[in-house]
């Protein structure tokens, strides 16, 4: 398990549906896989004090965040029977309706991917130093807080 090196999880801007589609297609050659599970985080047009969010601008402590993403990967591989796992998170501006987080897990069987995906997404929200600045339509902003 220790041969996996930390990867750069971050992508500049939104994660496109083409990229997600291509990621799925790349797994057709891995024929031991029987189940995939995918989480897509989408930027929501929250209304706060009458102002509507138009985008989120993401920044991160990138070195520490990539190390944390790596720890999460390693512990998910230890806990669940996974064939592979991919995590991508946006940096910079992502508009409402666009995808900012893409987590993709694959396994021989469905039960592992259901449990693994929830574990990974919750760990990302809790442990990874990423910051979202919610930009309103009038160009004012506030710092997002995860619930």
């Amino acid at each position: 398990m220790k041969d996996r090196k930390p990867k750069n999880v971050f992508k500049e801007g939104a994660i496109s549906s083409e990229f997600i589609g291509q990621s799925i297609a790349k797994h057709q050659s891995k024929t031991s896989i029987g189940a995939h599970n995918i989480f897509l985080g989408q930027v929501r047009a929250d209304v706060i004090d009458g102002k509507t969010v138009s985008a989120i601008e993401y920044t991160a402590y990138e070195e520490m965040a990539n190390a944390k993403f790596h720890e999460i990967r390693e512990s998910a591989f230890e806990k669940f029977n996974l064939t592979c796992m991919h995590i991508y998170h946006s940096l910079g501006t992502v508009k409402i309706g666009e995808i900012c987080l893409f987590v993709f897990v694959s396994s021989p069987s469905r039960k592992d991917v259901f449990k693994a995906l929830e574990f990974i997404v919750e760990a990302i929200k809790a442990d990874v130093p990423v910051y979202g600045k919610e930009i309103f339509e009038d160009a004012s902003h506030q710092w997002k807080v995860n619930s």
């Binding site: 993401y58 809790a126 979202g132």
Partner: peptide, 8 residues
Amino acid sequence: LLPPFSGG
């Protein structure tokens, strides 16, 4: 110095 995280 890291304020509360808000990734995802």
